[in-house]
């Protein structure tokens, strides 16, 4: 038996109230967080998602800020400064120092063009327009298209999904059939058809994308609605005679929010992708307007000789896509109660 000889005399007194209080206070009560706070805390722990969020914020600020203050006018043509490569002050690496290889020799393109004082961070295009300004401008257009289209598709998708799931029965079956039919044609084909009917242009692109990409949202929201519908608090609200609209806004939407937010993060990049593809095909935004798609298309033509003209817009496009995808992934993990720590 353990040696208990040297125990202090008062050891076997019942635990005092003070001792007990001390014990209780030792328990660091985990602060109870609401679902959203908890998700937010977990999101912040996800490095990829966090960096993406900051990057996206930065891109948004730059892209929309450039509407007020742009390095150059994105549409200002300078034929004499055409096709100048990237020149970033302080960086001597070939490709960023304003030099390019011509006839086997590396020359300073800026000197040759007589623009020694100027530096275009991303270079200029074939008309001498500042590529950085154009990329910012294009990003803005792409984002506007994607955001507006996503907003529409959110409204359509969420409403459709809630309605279908809430009604259930035949209405639901019919509404799901309609989605299946829409999904049986590749989205891009439908978008192209719609744009042909509406005449190419920014508005028709937005409408076309919005009209086609809500199906995913509708399906997810419907599935979730079906699940929530059976829950007790909803049943209670129904028996108490709350109106459907009120139930939808008070009980349904808050519980659908995580599904909606996550899906939105994947809808935005797909809208950006569609817009870029349309511009690339040649029925997207038309000149002198620019989007990331049109810039890519322009840059690709000269990729062999002036690779930077495609690399820059491609880079920005990929970063935006990547950031939205990572953020979507992070949000999905954050909202999933299974990934506790």
């Amino acid at each position: 038996m353990a040696d208990t000889a040297k125990l202090p005399a008062d050891s076997f007194k019942p635990m005092s109230a003070d001792d007990r209080a001390a014990l209780d206070s030792e328990k660091i009560a985990a602060p109870s967080l609401t679902f959203m706070q908890d998700a937010w805390r977990r999101l912040k722990k996800n490095k990829g998602a966090w960096v993406s969020l900051i990057l996206l914020a930065l891109i948004f600020i730059l892209a929309f800020g450039s509407a007020i203050a742009s390095p150059h006018d994105p549409n200002q043509v300078h034929p004499e400064y055409a096709n100048l490569p990237s020149k970033i002050p302080g960086i001597g690496i070939n490709g960023f120092n304003g030099t390019l290889v011509q006839a086997g020799q590396r020359i300073d393109a800026y000197k040759q063009a007589g623009a020694t004082g100027a530096h275009y961070l991303m270079g200029t295009d074939y008309l001498g327009r500042d590529l950085l300004s154009r990329v910012l401008y294009g990003t803005r257009i792409s984002l506007i298209i994607a955001l507006v289209a996503t907003l529409f598709d959110l409204t359509i998708g969420v409403t459709y999904g809630i309605f279908s799931g809430w009604k259930g029965g035949r209405v639901d079956t019919f509404m799901q059939r309609v989605i299946e039919i829409i999904l049986s044609i590749p989205n891009l084909v439908v978008i192209v058809l719609l744009i042909l009917i509406l005449k190419p242009g920014m508005l028709s692109i937005i409408i076309a994308i919005a009209l086609t990409s809500w199906t995913n949202m509708a399906r997810l929201v419907r599935a979730q609605t079906l699940e929530i519908k059976e829950q007790e608090y909803i049943l209670a609200a129904r028996t108490l005679g709350e109106s459907s609209l009120k139930i939808a806004f008070k009980h349904l939407l808050p519980n659908l929010s995580s599904v909606i937010i996550i899906n939105t993060m994947f809808t935005i990049p797909s809208a950006i992708f569609f817009e870029a593809t349309l511009s690339y095909i040649g029925i997207g935004i038309s000149s002198p307007q620019a989007s990331l798609g049109t810039l890519l298309n322009d840059g690709q033509k000269n990729f062999q000789f002036l690779p930077y003209q495609m690399w820059w817009p491609a880079l920005v496009l990929c970063i935006i896509m990547l950031a939205f995808n990572l953020l979507g992934d992070g949000l999905r993990d954050a909202f999933d109660p299974r990934t506790k720590e």
Partner: peptide
């Protein structure tokens, strides 16, 4: 884990020593 007897905080019969030293097995 707390020092002493891990059950002390929930134990209505806890002794002072429960917070200080882990109890051994008594036969």
């Amino acid at each position: 884990p707390p020092t002493g007897d891990a059950f002390a905080a929930r134990n209505a019969y806890a002794l002072k020593i429960d917070t200080e030293q882990e109890p051994p097995f008594f036969k």
